[in-house]
Structure formats: structure tokens, C-alpha cells
Design a binder for these strands. Structure first.
Length: 432
RNA sequence: GCGGCUAUAGUUCAGUGGCAGAACGCCGGUCUGUGGCACCGGAUGUCGUGGGUUCGACCCCCACUAGCCGCCCCA
């Protein structure tokens, strides 16, 4: 019988690492709340069509990286439904926005999510098949201001605040405008045209991209081709007046609140739904997976999946990568050895003391202390060894202590041992 | 999906075609109501899985699986 293991690309998160995850999530919740976001939880699987139409049939995600299966029909007459484990969460949020007619409130919807996503890719450091994203979306009717460049700037400023609050140092914000739903196709067409002559001289990947996804050519890292790629038509020249003004307003607002950025005219994102502003926060030390988070505006997504006009902008943070970044930086956000220790280890001495020791532990726990209870059959030496590993202090609870109501407490750090009344124990432990 | 590297004790890693090793950790003792330090002793294990070559394979060969690194792509 072979050992059953976590499947390829999935893993268990164990303490104390989960402390760091909790700290990151708590920080995100705290920051997002201050910016007026509320939490949304969408299903982990959806109708396959949602992603096909929302994310784009031609994207790699939809074409080859989704976990898709045929659901069992309830009746012979019923057609089997195709279901997919969500590869990202924006499409699900927009689906919920449409389904619950959130636009009819007339208000801007600010929603954040935290949860697992699934893509069937080759695993690597910081890239898993079940991975975790923390994301947020601002979406609503135009009358609610959902198209305003202020929304873009606000989101970017919030992300900068989030990373700063987590203690992530040395991040880089790159952004670009890929144009409106009208000018993007015009640009792609021009690019495609220019590429008919140039493409055959480029790398094999770009020859393929020129046909399947011309924008991707801009992303090529082959050194010899950079000059030719730079000579291709520029997105900026195809932006209409509105898009140009929108982008300028975003940059102006970022300048106003002092968020550092660099415009990267060749920043292209992989999902079809992006329009106008796209962005990426990167961080060194992540290897090939240097993108920490990414996002952009998606003014046409709602309509693409059958909803009302509802412009929006959002982002997704790769939590797995954020954890790696913080670990590499020796972050003290959570999980330092000191903080992982319990407040006290209660050591009963002798089996007769066991149940009374549980009562003592209960008193301390109810007082808010973190307590582990030992075993009365342990030799005292062993109680000290275990206690020293997992707690800041130890309380001895033997026959004498049970009778007198005076317990012996020892602080592992100072080595100081004192006798205190059982009734005062919690108060004393809380102070030290 | 493609290419390269790797897989040995709980962990980090040595190792040789002929008895499976170290360090740390773990368990026990010196020490039956006192940990950390020290000393003494002990167990670590299907050498990733399955085949093959060989008198004999942890070692050589093949396949598979998984991890890491890069590519594709992406958070």
C-alpha cells in the first residue's frame, strides 16, 4: 500500500507558518475595512462558461489550466453541466454582483475576498495548483462613479498602504493603460498588422504569440528582439481622448499622495477583460515568479457575462508569494519564536492531581491565558522539559499545592521560582 | 505542456557495486518535586515507487512519482 500524499501542487500549511498567514489576512481585512470594503465569499466552483466568457477563451488559463469536469445530470433528460474550480475570483465576484442586482442600489460596491484558487500548472516556488489570493473589486454603475480615475488611484494607494503595513520593503509598482474596450481592439489590429512583417524575424514564441495573442509579444524577454519590439506601434498612440485623460488623472492622483510608480508601456496582462489601467506590484527575491500582485480595470466584464454596464477595477494578491517575501525578509509580523510560546504549562504531579489540574487550567484559560496541561504520570523532570519547549512558565500542581491552595510557579526565562495563591495566579502570569 | 537538477533517519545532509553513516532533534540514564548546561547510553530507515543489469544494487540502466530551478504563462 503506497502512502497517500497531498496531490501535486498542493500542500499543507502548518503552525507556526499559519500564524503568518493569519497575520497577513488580518492586516488585509483591517486595511480594506478602512477603505470601505466588505467581504464577499463566492463558491469555489462555478459554471465553466463564466470563466470562458469572462476570462477569455483564448487565455492560457481557460485554454489549458482549468480544473473542469462534467457534473452528473440529475435526470436523463437533463443536460450535463460543465463545472470548473475557480482559477481566479474576479469573474465570480462580478457574477454575484449581477445575480444579486447590486447595481440597483445605485451605490459603488467595494468587495474583498480571501480564498483558494486553482490552476493546473507546473508547480514551482510560489506557484501552486491550489493557491491563495487576497483580492478586492470596486464595481458599480457609472452614475456611482465607478469609472472615475480616483477609484484606480485609491486602490493603488490602498495596496501601497497594505504592503507598508505588512512591512514589505522594496516593492515596485508598474502600471500602464491598455485602452478602452474601443481602442484596445484597434491597437491589437495595428499590432497584428505590424507583426505580419516583423514576426518571422522574432523568436519562435513570438511567432506564435503574433497570431494567438499579439499583446504578449510586448512582454518578450529575448534580448536580441527588444529593438524590433520597441519599434512596434505603441498603445499610448491608440488611446482615445478619454482613456488618455483617465490615465493622466490616475498618475496625477498617485503623485498627489506620494505613491511611487513607474509607467511601463509594455506591461500586458494575461486576462482578456482588462481595459485602461493595468498594474503590477513586483518584488525581488521571488525568482521567476516576481509578481506579488496584479490587477486592473475591467469596464466591459459585466456585460461580457450578460450583466448590465458596470465598470470596475480590482486586484489579486498572490498570498503564497507574499508569505515567501515576508519570510525571506525575516518579517516579525507574526511567528517569531517568543510569540509562539504559551503563557504557562500546568504540570500536575501524580495521577491524583490530574482532574484538579484541569480545573486550574480552565481557570487560567478563562482568564485569557494560553495554557497547556501536562500529564500527572510524567516525571517532574519531563514536565519541565516539555514545559520549557512550549511555554514561558510552568506551574507545579502536586499534593501540597492542591491542599494549601498555594502553587509553585517558575518563569523559564529568568529561572525565578515563587509560590503564589491560586487565586492570584492568573493576574501574576498575565503581568510577566 | 517543454528542458535541467534532485530524492538516504523526524530535520539538514555525507556515503560506497560487498554489514546503512554524521550532526541536530528524539528516547533513557547520571538526577524518584526542578528544565536550560554537561557527561553516558539507545532507537532511528521498505536508501521516493516499480522494473532491469549483476553472484550481489542505496550505488549502474529504464520508467514512473514528487520537489526544486528555468521556459511557457501568470498572482
Amino acid at each position: 500500500m503506497s502512502q497517500i500524499k497531498a496531490v501535486r501542487g498542493t500542500r499543507d500549511l502548518l503552525p507556526p507558518e499559519t500564524e503568518l498567514w493569519n497575520a497577513i489576512e488580518a492586516t488585509a481585512r483591517g486595511v480594506f475595512r478602512r477603505y470601505g470594503f466588505g467581504e464577499i465569499r463566492t463558491p469555489i466552483f462555478e459554471d465553466t462558461q463564466l470563466f470562458a466568457r469572462g476570462v477569455g477563451e483564448e487565455t492560457d488559463i481557460v485554454a489549458k489550466e482549468m480544473y473542469t469536469w462534467e457534473d452528473r445530470p440529475r435526470a436523463q433528460s437533463e443536460k450535463a453541466q460543465m463545472l470548473t474550480l475557480r482559477p481566479e475570483n474576479t469573474a465570480g465576484v462580478v457574477r454575484a454582483y449581477i445575480e444579486h442586482k447590486l447595481g440597483d442600489t445605485g451605490l459603488l460596491q467595494k468587495l474583498y475576498y480571501i480564498g483558494p484558487q486553482f490552476r493546473r500548472e507546473r508547480p514551482q516556488k510560489g506557484r501552486y495548483r491550489q493557491f491563495f489570493q487576497i483580492g478586492a473589486e470596486v464595481i458599480g454603475p457609472v452614475s456611482a462613479g465607478s469609472e472615475s480615475p480616483l477609484r484606480d488611484a485609491e486602490i493603488l494607494e490602498m495596496l501601497a498602504t497594505f504592503l507598508d503595513e505588512l512591512g514589505v520593503r522594496g516593492w515596485t509598482l508598474e502600471l500602464n493603460s491598455v485602452g478602452s474596450a474601443e481602442d484596445r481592439p484597434r491597437y491589437v489590429e495595428a499590432l497584428r498588422e505590424a507583426l505580419t512583417d516583423v514576426a518571422p524575424t522574432l523568436c519562435v514564441d513570438c511567432q506564435r504569440r503574433a497570431v494567438t495573442n499579439p499583446l504578449r509579444v510586448l512582454d518578450c524577454k529575448v534580448l536580441e528582439d527588444q529593438e524590433k519590439i520597441n519599434a512596434l506601434p505603441k498603445m499610448a498612440d491608440f488611446l482615445d481622448e478619454d482613456s488618455r485623460a483617465h490615465f493622466a488623472a490616475v498618475l496625477g492622483a498617485l503623485d498627489a499622495c506620494g505613491v511611487p510608480y513607474s509607467v511601463n508601456p509594455r506591461l500586458v496582462r494575461g486576462l482578456d477583460y482588462y481595459t485602461r489601467t493595468t498594474f503590477e506590484f513586483t518584488h525581488g527575491g521571488l525568482g521567476a515568479q516576481n509578481a506579488l500582485l496584479g490587477g486592473g480595470r475591467y469596464d466591459g466584464l459585466s456585460e461580457a457575462i450578460g450583466g448590465p454596464k458596470a465598470p470596475g477595477i480590482g486586484f489579486a494578491i498572490g498570498a503564497d508569494r507574499l508569505v515567501l517575501t515576508l519570510q525571506a525578509a525575516g518579517s516579525t509580523v507574526a511567528g517569531d519564536a517568543e510569540g509562539a510560546l504559551l503563557d504557562v504549562y500546568v504540570a500536575p504531579i501524580g495521577d491524583a492531581q490530574q482532574s484538579d489540574a484541569l480545573v486550574l487550567a480552565r481557570e487560567l484559560r478563562r482568564a485569557g491565558l494560553r495554557v497547556e496541561l501536562g500529564d500527572g504520570s510524567f516525571r517532574l523532570k519531563k514536565s519541565f522539559e516539555v514545559g520549557n519547549k512550549i511555554a514561558r512558565s510552568i506551574v507545579l500542581f502536586g499534593e501540597d499545592e492542591a491542599k494549601s491552595g498555594i502553587v509553585t510557579v517558575k518563569d523559564f526565562k529568568t529561572g525565578q521560582q515563587t509560590k503564589v495563591a491560586r487565586s492570584e495566579l492568573a493576574g501574576i502570569l498575565r503581568k510577566t
